[in-house]
Amino acid sequence: MVEYNTAQEVEKDAAYKKELVELLYQLADDDFILAFRGSEWLGIAPHIEEDVAFSSISQDKMGHAVIYYEMLEELGEGKADDLAHLREPKERKNAIILEEVNGPGNYLEEPEYDWAFAVVRNYFYDISKAIRLSSLKNSSYKPLAQVAKKMILEQYYHLTHWNMWFTQLINATDEAKKRMRQAIDKVWKDFDGVLTLGPSAKEMARLGLIKEEQELKDKWMTEIKEVFEKLGVELPTNDGPGMERGDGRNGEHTEDLTTALQTLSEVYKVDPAAGW
């Protein structure tokens, strides 16, 4: 199987480059938008200790997005900052569930944010991210394999953090149970959007960029089943989560992404050519 050590080497293999770029956009956009949602929580988490911990996790996620965007820059896709701030919603590859607002209100005004949703979304996401990273460790694109190895170390702490919250809340008070149940059902409806690798998943696997989509999905399901069984909680369905609102990998998105992009690029767009 082919292996590439640098962005320059990839230049001569157009078919490979196309899939690599596609995968990197998915990875970058997922981490970027979820880190953005995390940053909106800053200052209003359930307690100060959590504010500090959650913020540290969001920074790691944003840091990972930066690494992926910089890899794309190296591959000639344009400036990392432009990729993060200027691309239109339809060009974005992130999963729809990751762009969803944290709850009613706005981060500046009356943020009625839902902590149960934050816990479930982040927990499910970080399980899937850990699985994905451990596959990327063996990617045929060696720069990606290298960074995956580093990210896995951080990922362990994130996973532990969300696992602790999930475990603590799911069997606590009646209200906590109810809210967690609602959050699980909500995330479940669209979480397949995270697990999918989009229309060219097969090609990505064939080129050794990442493992087969189905294999990664099965791993995720196995882990989730184990957690749910251990905690005595029922799965919403036995055949895996859905993709009710569409496939973000295909550029399908909701209004939530449009407003998020407006916010996060508000200052940058004043003058993208200026130094900030």
Partner: peptide, 9 residues
């Protein structure tokens, strides 16, 4: 908003 979380904890 987080009262239920504090109660649960």
């Amino acid at each position: 908003n987080n009262e239920w979380v504090r109660e649960a904890l």
